[in-house]
Design a protein around this nucleic acid. Structure first.
Lengths: 235, 235
DNA sequence: AAGTGGTCTAGACCACGCA
DNA sequence: GCGTGGTCTAGACCACTTG
């Protein structure tokens, strides 16, 4: 760049300038903006610098890029929220509370049809089923209902889930799995209400997550949080 | 690279190799992995290629990088879910349904204390308050309860919110605002139940979002979805 | 003080997808 | 075709942090 901007890198200065031009409607939504070579000339920097700035803005949903067609300001910007869903233990201890968990149930049994399909099991195949209650300072924090595909991780059957939570064992043993996460609201059943210490029918935040290693389904879990629990998104 | 891998770019091939080595525990959680120069030599590519591969993996939470200290495999990988929260209209029409919305209420009035604080208003200041019902194929899809900071966007007061939803007007007029998003479960009040066509007390997925332009609060909104509604995360 | 990641450059080739 | 973005390279300087 002609003058070295004090705050941050050149590609970030380029990003700020692009964002400013979108905000002040120099480049309105849907508009075609100059190509990388033109902008590099204007900003007095290398094309790679412009490229990185625009690539990141495209990943953020601000710009839409197509070869030959050029770069446009996104017409329908999508609001994105990044949710961090750490291990339960961390969620609890990060807020200064004491973590504990109870294994409520453990069995190797054929899952219901919905779970069976999600884990890609042949009908009749058994899977490891575990239910736990996680506590913060002794009070109910999360009910976890988990199914583990024993075809994928047979070692799981011999893990003492009372000593180490399934979550932590899986993170250690099967790192880097890909996941699909769903959030919804559910009414507490009698059992769930008793566990979480809330009235039956109370609104619970429900997180369902299925993880794969490559194409191989590993586990699917349903997490229930007591009323008042919030998930906060960054960005 | 020595041999041109058919699928994708070189930096992606490097990423796949790094991920493979983490998975097979060549590089276990917490381990220090070779520096960029060493890896560039090993993979037979430029240092910038390794750098991009590792930078992205660090952004994804897989690696932790520090100058001088080097790069380590993340010890406590955090599960991240990226939620796309598009404009209501798109959410509805993308699933092939007809979109419609009714403006239920509109007033310029002092907000309750919680909202006032969130919008950074002086006590007694009025804000634009609007409540809408969004429909998909005529059926209730979302209840929107919004407050708009008229100090930040005075033009909002003269917008016909029956013709264009507040959401769409704000996206067009105040693009690129930053936002904080919260998800939780809430029990339907009598009014909300009537609007959404569900029993009172039914569990609703609640999304609260506040947006800023720089440091200036623009709007805060509470979105309620009927039972069964799900938000799905990518990655 | 030294080594690591973070960034930038100038140039190059490629691939996709409009015209 | 041909212009755009997408990627790669070889080399350079800088900034942070730790031994």
């Amino acid at each position: 760049m002609a003058r070295r901007l004090p705050q941050g890198a050149a590609y970030q200065a380029v990003q700020r300038e692009i964002l400013a031009r979108i905000r002040d409607k120099t480049w309105p939504p849907g508009a075609l903006i100059p190509g990388e070579i033109d902008l590099a000339a204007e900003f007095g920097c290398a094309r790679a610098t412009i490229s990185r700035a625009m690539r990141e803005l495209a990943e953020a949903g601000v710009l839409e890029r197509k070869r030959r067609a050029g770069t446009r300001v996104a017409a329908n910007p999508v609001r994105r929220a990044m949710l961090d869903i750490p291990m339960v233990r961390q969620q609890v201890t990060d807020t200064g509370r004491a973590y504990g968990h109870d294994l409520l149930f453990r069995a190797v049994e054929p899952p219901p049809e919905a779970i069976r399909a999600r884990l890609g099991l042949r009908p009749g195949t058994a899977a490891l089923h575990a239910r736990s209650l996680h506590r913060a300072d002794g009070r109910p924090f999360q009910v976890e209902d988990r199914w583990i595909n024993l075809d994928a991780v047979p070692e799981a059957v011999s893990v003492d889930l009372a000593a180490i939570s399934a979550n932590e064992w899986l993170v250690r043993e099967v790192p880097l799995s890909t996941a699909e996460t769903m959030l919804s609201a559910a009414a507490a059943t009698e059992v769930e209400a008793a566990l979480l210490g809330c009235p039956p029918g109370a609104p619970l935040l429900e997180i369902e997550r299925t993880t794969w290693l490559g194409d191989l389904p590993i586990t699917t879990v349903r997490l229930l949080h007591p009323p008042g629990f919030r998930v906060v998104g960054r960005v």
